[in-house]
């Protein structure tokens, strides 16, 4: 037999219109996609390689890696990277550990479980910049509720937002509070996918609940935990809106808390150097890309 292309007696589609019908359905979607996603992706890559790019004239002097060299040599970008990584390394593990515990407790048969869920999930839906203002008030050194509560444990007043040292913990605590609901929800749905028979079997064997937690729950939940870590790492890499309300729109009390996204904004809006901003955005994407690939790789492996 020759190549397996089958000549069919096609069902007649009388009109031209019905032939292009699928594309008419796609058209509204594709217009938005091409103009505001596809073209920008290509364009940002191009801009990042244009040296001396001017956003007004759209002229540039030559193609090259100049923007990347400038970005990587900029101490402010180095600071942004190191702050971002610090933030990721603090927020992701702590929020994951907390969420594992909370999700396990919420997964039991509880009274008022709707009430608990509302309490633990609420930060997910509210405006982070608006709630950030409340946090700013709570962090206030002299009148803040946080320092007041800590005073019961004999802690002196902490200058959360006024001091470079303390600004990172302040941001991290707010960040954890903010990311916790999402993490709990994903872990909770992971827990609900575990076959209850495993638990019944373990209980029949007389295992203690702690043993069940570490020998059954954690291993079976591992893929979800991993997934959550990756997603949270990616979203923490983009930290910006958490920072904005705490320090009146500045990155930290002494501009000491630059993050990658803050750096992009700075390069773009204050310096008007789009090439620099584009190069920084590409570097941000590289980080995200690597983590996404790791996620796909692991997911494919565990699925087999």
């Amino acid at each position: 037999m020759k190549k397996n292309t089958v000549q069919e007696r096609k069902i007649e589609n009388k009109s031209f219109l019905s032939k292009i019908e699928p594309f008419l359905y796609l058209l509204p979607f594709l217009i938005g996609l091409v103009v505001f996603t596809l073209y920008p992706v290509i364009n940002v890559v191009l801009i990042s390689f244009k040296e001396g790019y001017s956003h007004l004239s759209r002229n540039f002097t030559e193609w090259g890696l100049g923007n990347y060299e400038t970005v990587l040599a900029d101490p402010r970008f180095g600071q942004a990277i190191s702050n971002t990584i610090k933030y990721v390394l603090l927020v992701v593990p702590i929020s994951t550990c907390l969420s594992i515990v909370i999700a396990n407790l919420l997964n039991q048969k509880l009274r008022f479980s709707a009430l608990f869920q509302t309490a633990y999930f609420l930060p997910m839906v509210t405006s982070i910049t608006a709630v950030g203002l409340a946090w700013k008030l709570m962090y206030n050194k002299n009148f803040g509720i946080i320092n007041y509560l800590l005073s019961f444990f004999g802690v002196d007043k902490i200058p959360w937002l006024e001091n470079a040292q303390w600004s990172i913990p302040a941001l991290v605590i707010f960040g954890i509070w903010n990311i916790l609901p999402f993490t709990i929800i994903l872990l909770l749905s992971g827990l609900q996918n575990i076959d209850p028979l495993y638990y019944t079997a373990a209980k029949v064997d007389g295992s203690s609940s702690l043993r069940i937690f570490f020998r059954i729950t954690i291993p079976l939940l591992a893929p979800t935990i991993f997934l959550v870590c990756i997603i949270n790492t990616i979203s923490c890499f983009k930290v910006f809106s958490e920072l904005y309300p705490l320090f009146n729109g500045k990155p930290g009390p002494f501009n000491n808390l630059y993050t990658v996204v803050y750096y992009i904004r700075y390069a773009m809006m204050e310096n008007r150097k789009y090439g620099i901003a584009a190069a920084a955005a590409i570097i941000l994407f590289m980080f995200i890309f690597v983590f996404t690939m790791v996620q796909h790789f692991i997911q494919n492996r565990t699925r087999r």
Binding site: E8, R9, K10, I11, E12
Partner: peptide, 23 residues
């Protein structure tokens, strides 16, 4: 029913050739 096209042959309903007629 016209869900699948015919590779070869003809289908007649009374005197109508419906082989390529839409469902």
């Amino acid at each position: 029913s016209g869900i699948l096209p015919v590779t070869r042959g003809t289908i007649m309903f009374d005197n109508d050739d419906v082989t390529t007629m839409p469902p």
